[in-house]
């Protein structure tokens, strides 16, 4: 059974170590623009969130050159960068912003689960990222989805005044 990469809500401190490890492992450089995981920090709001592919596979069908496929071993959706033409269809269709084009060759970059041994979880100081079995993953996934339906705390004044 393939393992699943999940995020534990609220744990991320926004340190970007996962981002550095990802680009280092895949491209031998350290550069957020070459990473399959991206940490978004929202100013004036308590949000630090790692964004990465959920391996849904929506991008597979929109690729005109069949450069995207599912790795049967890991279940990861992977890009063949030799075939990729950089059309950007996959970026357009990705619902969560997990697919990107690198700034140099303008080809698709995404999480491939490092072939089943993700580098990002090794450098996360908060254990905010987990690589777990499907049955454990579903708990975190439901937790994550439930948070989208959270009622805001009242009074919610994240940025009440500027001076």
């Amino acid at each position: 059974m393939p393992k699943v990469l999940v995020v534990v809500p609220d744990k991320c401190t926004g340190c970007n170590r996962c981002v550095l490890a990802c680009s280092l492992k895949h491209f031998n450089v350290m550069n957020p623009a070459f990473s399959g995981i991206y940490v978004v920090r929202i100013d004036h709001e308590p949000v630090d969130a790692p964004i990465f592919c959920s391996q849904c596979g929506l991008c597979i069908n929109v690729c005109p050159v069949n450069a995207i496929s599912r790795d049967p071993k890991t279940g990861a959706v992977v890009v063949d960068r030799d075939k990729c033409t950089g059309c950007g269809n996959c970026v357009a269709v990705c619902p969560i912003g997990a697919m990107t084009l690198d700034p140099e060759k303008k080809k698709a970059v995404k999480c491939d689960l490092c072939g089943g041994d993700p580098a990002c979880i090794k450098v996360c100081p908060e254990d905010a990222l987990k690589f777990v079995d499907a049955r454990e993953a579903v708990f975190y996934k439901r937790f994550f989805t439930a948070r989208l339906q959270r009622k805001e705390l009242v009074p919610f004044k994240p940025y009440p005044r500027r001076r």
Binding site: T13, G14, C15, N16, H44, Y159, R162
Partner: peptide
Amino acid sequence: KRRACFGCTIGCGRYSWVPDGKYPTPL
């Protein structure tokens, strides 16, 4: 919440506020 600087394993940064009272302060 806690907020770390880039690349930090310690994460000493605080993200805090005072939501109401005499000295209200944004995040």
